[in-house]
Amino acid sequence: MALSRRFLPFVLPLALLILWQAGVSTLQPGPRTPTPGSVVSTAWSLISTGQLPLAMILSLGRVLTGFVSAAVCAILIGFLMAVSPSIGRNLDPLMESFRPIAPIALLPLAILWFGTGTSAAAFIVGYAAFFPILINTIQGVRSIDPSLPRAARTLGVGLPAIIRNVILPGALPNIFVGARLGLGLAWSSIIAAELAVGAKTGDAGSGGIGQMMFVFYAYSVDLSGIIVCMIAVGVVALVIDRGLRAVEKRLLPWKQ
């Protein structure tokens, strides 16, 4: 009973793998039909030639540029909006109006403004990451028990010290939630942006994992390559998420 429980988690993934292999070998396999074997060998060749790591680094670099600038703006604006009611009230309509616009819808505009290079992709990524961080920063600052800064003031602590030692630590857990959400969204947006840019410029685009997928789709019709890219995208998303959680644990030891 306990032993069979141990194996349960592997049942479905293994079953799918076997089904895939069985399906490929019973139905007549075209030369392009991906098999588990061909995916593994494609993955190996893509990694050993450095193509996949290179594309990944390009994409990650764009995500980082966009994300960091979005985070800086969002945290600053969020702080101001939460601390000052009048700023909050006046900026709120703008933020609420822009928030529902799906980031990828702005891609055509970004291409018009910045061309098909890194800046367009970074703009989309930044836009995607901005709102989750902003909303959660506001939420975090507002959720601080008002008696805490008051208590600090009765102890004779000045405003800068209160911001650094009371407000920032109090809002940090929420800011982290926003950053995690924002980075996840940024990562899936970069794929979309590069895919779309790839769709416009074909081979001649500026690279990145999304464009690589599009080239596999439209030019070399390499399904195994597409699947390798999908897995790589998933692995990176997972690493980003777990990595941020680990950082969060280190930085916020008081949140068990």
């Binding site: 429980r5 988690p9 479905l12 993934p13 799918l16 599009f214 596999f216 399904l223």
Partner: peptide, 29 residues
């Protein structure tokens, strides 16, 4: 159901990080 959870959860955790957008090329094909 713990059993169903043990059965299905790994698949969900495997697929979830692959965003819908990353499926577009394969889906188009």
């Amino acid at each position: 159901s713990r059993i169903l959870y043990a059965l299905v959860d790994p698949l969900i955790e495997l697929l979830r990080p692959i965003s819908g957008i990353a499926w577009i090329p394969l889906g188009m094909f």
